[in-house]
Design a binder for these strands. Structure first.
Lengths: 266, 266
DNA sequence: GTACCCCTGTGGTCTGACCACATGCGGTAC
DNA sequence: GTACCGCATGTGGTCAGACCACAGGGGTAC
């Protein structure tokens, strides 16, 4: 039995308190000084534990005074997953192709699941996942679970939209179906992967020979995917999504979908 | 533009150096004091950055002297992913049911991909993934890519094997196919999920009414999966795996997720 | 040649201090 | 009574310096 380091003891204590429900989402942890005295360690050790919590997306810290200051319990699993993936890609041990292949795997699953849920009427509500609050979801809900996706699609089809704006809407479009699929972990992981390979995607876009043509094709594919989901056709949604993503990465020069195609997942 | 905090600057600097290949796998970072002076910050800030790297599975730290001491660059993405998932489950924002569903998703993909790769003869080598070294893989290689899986299967079928040993072999059995599938990120994520819900699985096993009967069924299912992979039958491997995992969680009372969360976190 | 011991460098931890910041209270001017 | 202003307060952020335990390696005594 090895002796725990001090910051590990602090982390374990906080984790246990979290599991016991000591703090709800949005509530504040005690101050670093108070926490240090409570556990009987130095403030530096508490800070190291808080750093890990922050990197994992469990808390966010802010200076100052008032209810928004201090270490607030949040829920951003994507932050932690994305950080870990990004660092491993940077260290060179994790190939980008594996990251892309994993993204394809998750996205195709999410799209198929979303279609099945639309058909079965089991679409989660807007706030069903709790106060995730990663971004304002202020779309006007016309009653359809696909209203958000349709709005993003319309924004992507506006004339004169920049490639950066297009990519951002594109990613939100994909993420919207992950939300509909109703698995928070998959949604978070997709968001994390997106952050980890965002730089590579942007670089790939800059190398595209003809962006207007590419974006037009992407718009057509998006609409086909949306209609497949709306029709509840899971297999079609999955196939279209796989072709959509692999086609983009192939055109952008990021080989990664090839292996997946050969695997015949679909 | 917000000003980066000091430990974030340190982390960004180290990440850039990692991406530039300043340190290879197994090499040591400069000492904390040297790093602090090099970047022009205090040692405390360097330590906070190192904590994040350590939690992400990028480095491991050790005291003392010699080549093994200090912050050594490693490659354990599962550590970071598992930590983040585990903390979010502890905070109550991430339902165990989502974690289980994600595990099913990844495992069925890996099993299908493994089958396709076996058929195509594209099985990665033993050390293809680099010095991950999560566990000794000392099986005698008889030339078949499934030798490791067969050995684990044989160990699970030995008379008198304890339930804990069985579960450990079971998880290694599943992980073996993730390795064959050749996606390091999927393999790492499966390992991380396993760590995050390991305690819940152990508890579920203890509640099983009849372990000998259950384990006998699991052995039969394992053998069927192995043969499907060996035959290169991806769809069959995927179907058998899904039934295998979902059947186990259902029998262990974890299918609902909600009930299980109450049992584990209450 | 061997066994021992101390020197050195590592991370681990603590203490105490100061800073920047955001809030909210209380005083003040009108 | 109201509106405004400024400082007290508590927060995280950062730093400097110190001491400790630990593991290795080289020098020394035999």
């Amino acid at each position: 039995m090895t002796v725990m380091r001090t910051h590990e003891r602090v982390l374990a204590q906080i984790e246990a308190d979290l599991a016991a429900g000591r703090w709800a989402l949005g509530e504040r942890l005690p101050g670093e000084r108070a926490l240090a005295e409570e556990i009987g360690v130095s403030r530096a050790s508490v800070r190291e534990a808080v750093r890990i919590l922050e990197a994992a997306g469990i808390v966010r810290t802010a200076v100052g005074s008032g209810p928004t200051a201090g270490a607030v319990v949040i829920d951003r699993p994507a932050a932690g997953l994305g950080t870990a993936v990004r660092l491993h890609v940077a260290s060179g041990a994790l190939p980008v192709s594996d990251v892309v292949a994993t993204r394809v795997l998750l996205e195709t699953w999410a799209m198929r699941e979303a279609a099945e849920r639309v058909r079965g009427g089991r679409v989660p509500g807007e706030v069903g996942g709790g106060a995730r609050g990663d971004r304002a979801r202020d779309r006007a809900d016309d009653g359809s679970p696909l209203a958000g996706a349709r709005r993003l699609l319309a924004e992507m089809e506006e004339p004169g939209v920049s490639s950066l704006d297009f990519i951002a809407r594109d990613q939100d479009f994909h993420l919207e179906f992950a939300r509909i699929a109703g698995n928070q972990l998959v949604e978070a992981f997709m968001l994390g992967l997106r952050g980890a390979i965002g730089a590579y995607v942007a670089e790939g876009v800059s190398r595209l020979p003809d962006w207007p043509t590419t974006s037009a094709r992407l718009r057509t594919e998006h609409r086909a995917i949306l209609e497949a989901v709306a029709a509840g056709d899971g297999p079609a949604a999955e196939r279209l999504t796989r072709e959509h993503i692999e086609g983009f990465y192939a055109e952008a020069g990021l080989a990664g979908g090839t292996k997946f195609t050969e695997a015949g997942c679909g």
